[in-house]
């Protein structure tokens, strides 16, 4: 089966006062219909930028997608016209951002903001679109949905706003939802509610989902497949079971060992990844993770390792076979 989304060798650069920042340095991955992909990494690893690049939402200046192709339903999104990409955004691919406080317009009612894209993309009349907006709010489990349509965003809490964002995302039955740290700003119990809701909705509608997060637990609970990113590149990808059960990249291994787990032995010390996260202005030659890596060999200094396939769809970008050490 042909994948829904194919990202091929995507590069996104930013030109700042301090120099050229290679935020995304050549990443490739596929996503099939109905799949949930976790994009994990720390701040600055390029996970958000790579997602924004797919929808051509990188502000220029200072940024630009300098190379690469993104095939979605057979079309290269990097080459289609402005009108076509606008049709894709919100209609075929919905995006949910981290900041539920700022992604809604404070002077328009919730109902208007959900109904407006429906009239635009689906050609519904005003009454129809408002009726559907009410149904969408019910779907995202907002109580008394019909009455809430007339309310303004400031009356909604962060969790409720994020629900509205999800409702807006679902409005046009998108094929793909990209959720960029959708719950990071929210409380733990609200986080769980929302993720559960999103997972349920994608299951019901067969929508593909990309969750961008730094939280390894969230990915473990919800994702089918995982891409681990470091300094603008994918360093390991595979099914969630393989990434967590048999991590092969030193960075992935380091991440797993450095977070406390609720079920771990409390006497065990955490093993941190030493050093600092990479400075994208000065990415070292060779493997970007080398300065922090316990397994590094001489070759790592010189040549950037490419992703190589280990087993069924499990790929890792590392010169060293970590199992031998």
């Amino acid at each position: 089966m042909k994948p829904l989304l194919e990202v091929k060798n995507l590069h996104t650069h930013f030109l700042t006062d301090d120099g050229l920042v290679k935020a995304v340095g050549g990443i490739s991955y596929d996503l099939h219909e109905g799949e949930t992909l976790g994009l994990v990494g720390e701040s600055g690893c390029g996970k958000s930028v790579s997602a924004l690049s797919i929808l051509r939402l990188i502000p220029n200046p200072p940024g630009k997608v300098v190379e690469g192709e993104v095939f979605f339903e057979g079309r290269d999104l990097m080459k289609v016209s402005e009108d076509e990409i606008r049709e894709v955004r919100g209609n075929k691919i919905a995006m949910i951002f981290q900041e539920p406080m700022t992604s809604l317009n404070p002077v328009l009612t919730i109902g208007y903001q959900i109904a407006e894209p429906l009239t635009l993309h689906k050609g519904l009349s005003k009454e129809e679109s408002w009726k559907e907006a009410g149904e969408l709010l019910t779907k995202v489990q907002i109580p008394e949905a019909a009455a809430r349509l007339r309310a303004y965003p400031h009356l909604f809490s962060g969790g409720m706003r994020q629900r509205v964002m999800i409702a807006m995302g679902l409005g046009c039955n998108p094929k793909l939802i990209i959720a960029d740290e959708p719950t990071t700003a929210l409380d733990v119990t609200i986080q769980a509610q929302l993720l559960e809701l999103m997972k349920g909705l994608t299951r019901d509608f067969g929508t593909a989902l990309i969750i961008i997060t730094h939280n390894l637990g969230v990915v473990a609970r919800y994702a089918d497949r995982v891409n681990v990113m470091y300094a603008g590149r994918i360093v390991e990808k595979g099914s969630a079971k393989e990434i967590y059960g048999d991590p092969r990249h030193p960075y992935t291994i380091g991440l797993m060992a450095s977070v406390p787990r609720l079920d771990m032995d409390v006497k065990k010390k955490l093993i941190p990844i030493e050093g600092q996260p990479p400075d994208l202005l000065h990415i070292p030659a060779g493997c970007a993770f080398r300065p922090r890596c316990n397994y590094a060999v001489e070759k790592c200094q010189e040549v950037i390792p490419e992703l190589t396939t280990l087993a069924d769809k499990h790929e890792v970008a590392c010169w060293v076979d970590v199992r031998r050490n």
Partner: peptide, 10 residues
């Protein structure tokens, strides 16, 4: 992250 500020460069 918002579109206005870039990751890594606060």
């Amino acid at each position: 992250m918002t579109t206005a500020t870039m990751e890594g460069t606060e």
